[in-house]
Design a protein around this nucleic acid. Structure first.
Lengths: 343, 343
DNA sequence: ATGAAAGCGCTAACAA
DNA sequence: TTGTTAGCGCTTTCAT
């Protein structure tokens, strides 16, 4: 009473297993009559061909690994969903691994994925140590970096143009008349680029360098955003920032929360802009103006790139950067009259 | 230059593959000396044993399937994270399938999981058609229903006590003096139980039956919550509900949004209570009072149950119901003076 | 158009 | 303690 195998189907149909295999994979020449008979029997037997057996003979398992920091983080959950759909379209399944940005955990997952002989790997969780990825590449594993570039490695990548995004966010704030603009950034490489865009935008606007107390770097949680904001907004009006650029939505929402707790009205007393445009941006109050990553497009292209790499591991890798977009909602407004820049 | 196999290790170590297999699985008697030599060689060769080959010989693949409506939905993302950790602890990997509550999609995923020969299945996505699950059970697939019971099927299940949760939410609102309490519920079986708890609580409080316009059933999106609230709150004060129980957080947040749009202050003019206690409840404004599902505990026990079923498919199934808990935040308050019930 | 047979990389008796 | 061997359920030449 165990699961039927290809032998059962063959016996029942009075043909050889080779024939059954051919109808399974739709190759070879099979007469319509036998094909239909065999298909009927498969249905009758509730036959499900073993993908583990076929993975052993072919070189492909039809599974791809996705490493992210945490599936419970809405940004990555949304990305994972897109990847899942993409994998599905190309007949693969996804194994999602939440690394918590823990190098040891990441290494364990990596080994697991290798043992599973995944066809390819998408890494959306920068692990700090490039050596693991370098070894993957040496081993010939098709690998794609998502939202992270490692220029020293010959590994394809796709991500939003973080620098442009940071710049765009800052320019928007500047255009609203803000001149004291704080930043809360994450430790990740992408976040550093966003910060660089921010700095350049300020410099080009002729503003003085950002004082250290208006720039904090932390890791991306709501609570950290709050803490950072508490310090930054503690100063008196006229000194504290009139706007802050948070390098992701979670941090931005922490700022919103803290502003409220401190009795500051957003956007009247303080403007806030985030990054990522997760569903949270639409849920918080006031709704968050933010920089949107075109996830759907990014993941679609990522899957295309990965599939290409799987089909031809020798193909040259590419690095793609897509344009982020400003999404205006309600959390950023004109700088207070008294603080307006002259431009 | 392909991936090393057990043969490569054996040759290099000058032993048979059986010996290598034994150190791999830590069984059989192996002298410490050879074990260490073999382990050294494995490391040297960067050997990763093929789990697909071992899955073919043993009966287990070490993977379990998780069917949910949508990984991008925070409640399920949080649950998936817990499941992932649980699977990890027992040495398995998770394949997550977002069905969008689409029966056809669910069927496709189901077949894929069967072909992958998953060791077990957690179904957290009620698909409406029990026949698929019935067939699974017949086929001997260890299956666990999460947040859904199918009394007609001999399938283990674990979930929160929805009835008690609905009741608890409603009693809380009653205790705040509300007497016109609306409900927005989902189509899912769990949601119906929550609604039943709500109805019973109202009846026992001696309140008149809920008029139809104070009870809407829709599917769980923020937008639907908003729409439902728009209708329900359109009536004049004195007629419209002073409180609404939304059967999940997403719907509740929709209500919050609509209340704000309609110029109603929460909780002064309207109290709102949700269900699930997702991270959203803490992010929205005012923070949402809600009924919490002890996800961590539920998923831990779920994994235990599933593993037990995998180890002994003949063992009797159990149905576990865990207690939900009221989490008080800021979205529910006393009923307006003029509306207080007498009790 | 169909079949026979040799693997794929492992595990698990059973021998030695 | 170690080795031999027969599968596991498929795919894929190569014959027929």
């Amino acid at each position: 009473m165990s699961k039927p195998t290809i032998y059962d189907v063959a016996r029942e149909a009075g043909v050889s297993i080779a024939t059954v295999s051919k109808v399974l994979n739709n190759n070879g020449r099979i007469s319509d009559k036998t094909r239909q008979r065999i298909e009927g029997i498969m249905r009758e037997l509730n036959y499900e061909p073993s993908r583990v057996a076929s993975a052993l003979t072919r070189s492909r398992t039809g599974t791809i690994g996705l490493m992210i920091p945490d599936i419970a983080n809405p940004f990555f959950a949304e990305a994972a969903r897109c990847f899942e759909d993409g994998a599905q379209r190309s007949g693969s399944d996804l194994i999602i691994c939440s690394t918590d940005r823990d190098d040891e955990k990441a290494a364990r997952y990596l080994s697991m994925l290798l043992r599973r002989r995944v066809d390819g790997l998408i890494i959306a969780s920068h692990t700090g140590d490039e050596s693991g990825i370098a070894r993957l590449l040496e081993g010939g594993m098709p690998t794609l970096l998502f939202s992270a570039e490692l220029p020293s490695l010959n590994c394809g990548s796709i991500g939003v143009d973080d620098y442009a995004g940071g710049r765009r966010a800052t320019e928007y704030l500047l255009s609203l008349g803000h001149r004291r603009i704080g930043i809360i950034s994450d430790n990740l490489p992408g976040s550093r680029l966003r910060e660089q865009g921010y700095l350049d935008a300020l410099r080009e606007a002729g503003l003085p360098p950002v004082p250290p107390e208006h720039s904090v770097r932390t890791s991306a949680t709501l609570e950290n955003g709050r803490t950072a904001a508490r310090e930054m907004l503690g100063a008196e009006p006229g000194i504290r920032p009139t706007a802050v650029f948070a390098c992701n939505d979670l941090l931005a929402i922490g700022v919103l929360k803290q502003a409220r707790a401190a009795g500051l009205s957003v956007p009247r007393d303080l403007s806030v802009i985030g990054f990522d445009n997760t569903m949270l941006a639409d849920i918080c109050q006031p709704a968050l103006s933010t920089i949107s990553q075109p996830l759907r497009e990014m993941t679609r292209r990522a899957m295309d790139m990965l599939n290409a790499a799987i089909d031809d591991p020798a193909a040259p890798v590419s690095h793609i950067r897509v344009e982020p977009e400003l999404v205006v909602r309600d959390s950023a407004g004109p700088a207070p009259e008294s603080e307006r820049s002259e431009q």
